[in-house]
Each structure stands twice: as C-alpha cells, then as structure tokens.
Amino acid sequence: MIHLDNVSWRRGKKDSAPVLAHLSFMVPQGGFRWLLGPSGAGKSSLLSLLHIENLPTDGQMTILGKTVAQEEKRAALVRLRQRIGMVHQDYQLMPDLSVADNVALPLRLQNRPEDEIQDEVHAILKWVGLGSRTDVPANRLSGGEQQRTAIARAIIHRPGLILADEPTNALEESQSCRLLDMFAELSAMGTTVVVATHNESLVRRLERPFLFLEHGRLVDDGGEQP
C-alpha cells in the first residue's frame, strides 16, 4: 500500500523549487500503476522517494503501511527498504560482481542461508534468460543483460512493493511482454507495482490506472482518491 498526502520534495536547499509538489495519491496493496509523464517531469524522483532514498520535504508518506518520516528510526527504514524491489533507470549494478552475486545481494543482506540463495538465484536467472551468464561480471554485460540482471535483483526477495523505472527500454519486444505478464501476475498475487515508462505500446498492452506527472505535479492520480 502506498499513500501520499500533499507530499513535496526539494533537492537540497529549502528555497529551491520543488522537484515534486503537492502529490496526493494512493495505491492499494496489490495495485498496479503506470507512472507516465514527459522527460524531466519527475518520474525517477518520485520512484526514489517511494524507495525511501529520499524523504519527503513536506507532507505525509506511507509505504507498505508504514509512515515514513524524518524522525523514523533508521533501523525501521532499513527493514522497510528490504521489502521493496527497485529497478533503477541506470540499473545500479555492482560492476565488479558477477551476475549471480549481484542478484544474490538482497538475500545476502537478509542473511539467508547460502544454499537457499544459490537455488533462488539460478531459478530467477534462468527465468530472465541469463542462465548461461551467471559468472560474467556486470561491467561486461550488454545493456539488455544489465537490465535483466537489475530486474532479477529487484524481485528475487519477493518484495511487497516493486518499483521499476523504464524497465523495458533495453529489452526486446518479447522480453518486455514476458516482464509485463510477470508484473501483472505479481500484482494479482498481492504485490504493489509501480512502473515508470515512455513506452506507449506497452501501456496499451496492459490497461491499468496511471499516475501522470508534469513538472513535478500530478495531473492524473489514477482514479483512486486518498
């Protein structure tokens, strides 16, 4: 569940213009939202906020049923972040680590047993079509391979909330479709999913409510009032 109430976010100084201004919307648990808007509208900024890489400058934000605020205990935010999977626009892989080690990271950070980790990693890498590339360092992957690695890393720990920033821009049509089907399936099973994209044909394939941003303001809130 995501709930934003009049949330604004500024980058840096107090008197700078807000990157995101007065956002109010809500996504129920298991809901799926497209995040749309022109380049520079603030889609990536909003996803970073939902991923708790930044905290709202103003307003109230609730992620997975937990209120996120400045005075929150750091340990609580760490636990909350472990329940979110994020595919960054620039992937943010560990360049020196192999594909398998990159994907294993969320599980290792949760101290899961190593044999369980190996099984999960192999299964998910097979699913994204990287079963034969497990030992390749991330900095020797093609763009599409990096993107699939990032997707695998974002979903391997079965997060309650998946945030994906342009997750298909480096993928082939067929791969994009499979990914979309999986997101729909995960959403049906109770995972909240927010996907930012420019790809209109993709949006047309899966008709779901959307959040439309323009200049950091919400023009369309997807129909569900907070």
């Binding site: 890489e53 750091r74 760490v78 972040r81 969320p106 950070l109």
Partner: peptide, 16 residues
C-alpha cells in the same frame, strides 16, 4: 560512494 548508496538502497544497515 555510489556502491554504498546502492547497497543502502538494497537494504544494507548502517552497522553492516
């Protein structure tokens, strides 16, 4: 710096 930010985003605690 960037690696730490990514690790932090993946849910690494300060003590880790």
């Amino acid at each position: 710096k960037d690696i730490i930010k990514t690790l932090h985003g993946l849910g690494a605690s300060d003590s880790y």
